[in-house]
Amino acid sequence: MIELRNIEKKYGETVALKKVSLRIERGEIFAVIGNSGAGKTTLLRILSMLETDFLGEYLFNGKDARERAEEVRGRITMVFQNPVMFKGSVFDNVAYGLRVRNVDSDEIEKKVEEMLKLFRLERFRDKSARKLSGGEKQRVAMARAFVIDADVYALDEPTANLDPENARIIEKTIKKIKERGKTIVLATHNLFQAKRLADRAAYIESGQIIETGESKELFENPKHPRTQNFIYGFDFF
């Protein structure tokens, strides 16, 4: 579904990604793990076509993504680490992606209500989204993305700095969305979360993919010394 070949990205003189090659299959949860500044966000921004100025090849469903960036953006939605809220109510925020697609108002009402229920946001429906807590904002950001019938959701540290209750709601919903056949790319430095959710994972360090594999295999039996160093620094059990 998604194939990256030798992707390179620079911001001025800073190299953010070096020769990144990846394959992400339809319907899987693919975790990109690594420390802060490793290049996870840049990778997600490229997947979501928010960055189009990069070297290498990006194929989406076998076709060059850059040549049809707008179409790819319609199929991949990114949720940012710091949830940005539009002015307006929670309902308006969640409905935005449907409104720009000219979905009719009855349909918007139905889909938004469904998402608010899924993320337990019903009681905040008419409240100002900007006045919510960090965890509630993150849930709105997820609902706003998932209400769109995209093929792929790129989630950047979706539970970073959240309390356990909000993190639990979000993880539960990610699983539900996966059950609907959606593909999820999850960037996280939380190994426990990646292990719980992901089918496959890649370890990224200093802009380079060090190792990719089945989630269980990667976490329990990492091959590369740098992956071992990263993973064994954590005590899972």
């Binding site: 953006r73 939605t77 990114m78 940012f80 935005y96 992606g97 697609r101 993305a145």
Partner: peptide, 8 residues
């Protein structure tokens, strides 16, 4: 970025 990724 937000509007773009939401399909605007």
């Amino acid at each position: 970025d937000l509007a773009l990724t939401l399909g605007a």
